[in-house]
Design a protein around this nucleic acid. Sequence first.
RNA 1: GCCGGAGUGGUGGAAUGGUAUACACGCUCGACUUAAAAUCGAGUCCCUCACGGGAUGCGGGUUCGAUCCCCGCCUCCGGCACCA
Length: 794
Amino acid sequence: MRSYDHIAIEKKWQDKWAKDEIYKVEDQVEGRENRFVLVEYPYPSGNLHIGHWYAFSVPDIYARAQRMKGYNVLFPIGFDSFGLPAENAAIKNGVDPREWTEGNIKTMVEQLKSMGNSFDWSRSIAASDPEYYKWTQWLFLKLYENNLAYRGKAAVNWDPVDQTVLANEQVLADGTAERSGAKVVRKYLEQWFIKITDYADRLVDDLDDLDWPEEIKLSQRNWIGRRGGAEIDFKISGEDESVSVFTTRPDTVFGATYMVLAPEHELVEKLKNKVTNRSDVETYIKDSSVKSDIDRMSLGKEKTGVVLEGLSAINPATKEDIPIYIADYVLAHYGTGAIMAVPAHDERDWEFAQKFNIDAVGVIEAEKMPYTGSGILVNSGEFNGTYSEDAKEGIVEFVGGKMTSNYKLRDWLVSRQRYWGAPIPIVYDPNGNPHKVPEEHLPWLLPQDVTFDVKGKSPLATSKELVARTEKIFGDGWYPEVDTFDTFVDSSWYFLRYLDPKNDKSFSNIDKQKKWMPIEMYSGGAEHTTVHLLYSRFFYKALYDLKLVHDKEPYKKRMNRGIILGTDGAKMSKSKGNVIDPDSQVKSVGADSVKMYLAFIGPYAEVGTYPWDMGGIAGIRRFLERVYGVSSDISDESKSSDEVRSELHKSVKKVGEDIELFKFNTAISQMMILTNLIEKEGSISKEDFKIFLRILSPFAPYLVDEMWEMLGGINSVHLEDWPKYEEKYLLTDEVKIAVQINGKVRLVVSMPPNQAESDVVVTVLGDPAISKWVDGKKIQKQIYVPNKLINFVL
RNA sequence: GCCGGAGUGGUGGAAUGGUAUACACGCUCGACUUAAAAUCGAGUCCCUCACGGGAUGCGGGUUCGAUCCCCGCCUCCGGCACCA
């Protein structure tokens, strides 16, 4: 056992790899297929934590193995460098967000380099770089030109004390502001939206063809929430108006005994002077409008509402007059903002009807109301006796409605009343009409003369330079948009910039895209399953329709990773004092051990929570020292036994296969088994050991390159090919066969492989451990699995 | 409430119809040492002296054979939240 000097080795190889540019990637290499391996680019918080190591150094094993297997692999890294923390630092400490961010990036680049990953640093990007956000703005304008971006009113979380808009994360569960403690209210502002809902169907349907884990696909389907149903018009009695409702249960129209409009429904405003209880109605509308969404929810299950006295609607199936209510259990933004209420067959309607004493008419046979299942129709005129599911389309036709779908997904609100983001490249003429900032003025720069902690408006609204710039270019009275983009806009296309990071004519050259896209493997956090993955899939599809990218989906495979916990099994946090600092770990056991321990801690492809174990990482270091010990003992005369050679070839096969499945933990355990055997046998040939080093090299890149050189390697081991295993060595000259009586193992025998069933039977029945069980009884049945097992049923 | 995932030794986990508990950590004993650390060796699911028997959250089922497939529960974790 020899210890090795990881500090010296890491320094030596970092310098050498950088000098020889061994991870620099060309767009095309003769005889090699391209593969793009992507990890989510990090926010530059200023310090690398263990989660970053987990996110980047483990997928590096995969990227390196792909390279050895003959692919030309792109494995880039960059920074998601716009966002709230920089702005908070500016408010708190008076530092410039740009300087703060750039300082953090500099620190993190150094830390990232210490990992020893095979990143191509020449392609690194940062979202806050004007040369990057120029293209974020350009792409937004393309969407705008094609009617995929629009301005509309939207509710924001408004803090009435601080006079500011809050992000959802800044609102506590009880509906108060994190900072001021004030009750957060809803406020309506003109904001920019991107029309992701136009793509809802394709975003659902195209999931079918993706090689993604089913649970991720399912999450996206649920998030989009496509529901089939019908839209049906209800006429208002005595008025020249009608209300359209969406329902998934058109089979129950005959049971609709009232209808409900959302308080925000446009018809309420229109008809409220016709109701006889106008002041009650207005009070209700006003009350619900100041309630935040959180307030609405925290009211729990107790439903509120008010009837529109003097108005009624006509049930299109029964032709009967039914009352109309407004109630905030009906959401303005889903469906048509109005429902037909069927208390007999819907729990919410039932609850509301109980409270307001509204009749319920059962239209499906059931023992008790409310009954929400399907069944035989009653009280439904000509449809009586039909099975409800089968009657849906007929009833829709009967009442003059149409079959349609609805979605939970809403358009993407991209405006943020924040400083540190890409400015929305829009200006307004003196009449308030929006106009694009023309391409020649991009990047539309973020102004510097702003006040960050501003009350009641966006920080950009305090910039004199921005206004002056706008008037100078567009004319007097023109004024700029002062909101910036949601950072999810930046991250919706960043992977395309890695392909062509320096291009000042295009966001990403399409010929280069054709060489690299789609992404072979995208690894990231489970928290991005719906939002980021959906937004970027949408962006890619929209760009596809504009012929700016050449295929329909950006990510062939996706892998969600788990979380590393503290040694106490709790989530790492400063307050708990259980934070593992990667730098100090690297210092004490080396980057290879940290990386390999993280790969060994649990199955990477499963979203688990894995507690850090100091003993565990020491065990990995011990393993690497044992391998290092073997390498020091190797001479030209060293020989491999048959067992060692067989285990080696088994390892080449298994490690290669496990890496493809991101099962790094079992790959490592196989290499441990091999090392245990080499030590037990006392020797391995130099050539065989070099095969072992090659499969170990993606896991411990520094140490293996050192050992490779010790054994006479001229070039870096990381330029070697993945070794091939030979079938003939996989077979050992003995296999162990389990002998079962009625499914219970009674004996294990060793014999040469591929024995005929009859020979095995004769052999094992002769063994007293088996014959004592059989003992003259008749063998009813025998099952033989070659080289594995034989089972006698007595 | 709805949707999803997971329950295996003291611990992280392995095995997706064929010898359950690989590999690692921890622990126990031994060697080396004046001693300790490091290292090496042996052992380590439970009951039993043994023969055997039992155990993969609980209860049933399918099968020659079930951690794995099916049905019914329980617990934990994650997501969504009056979506008509």
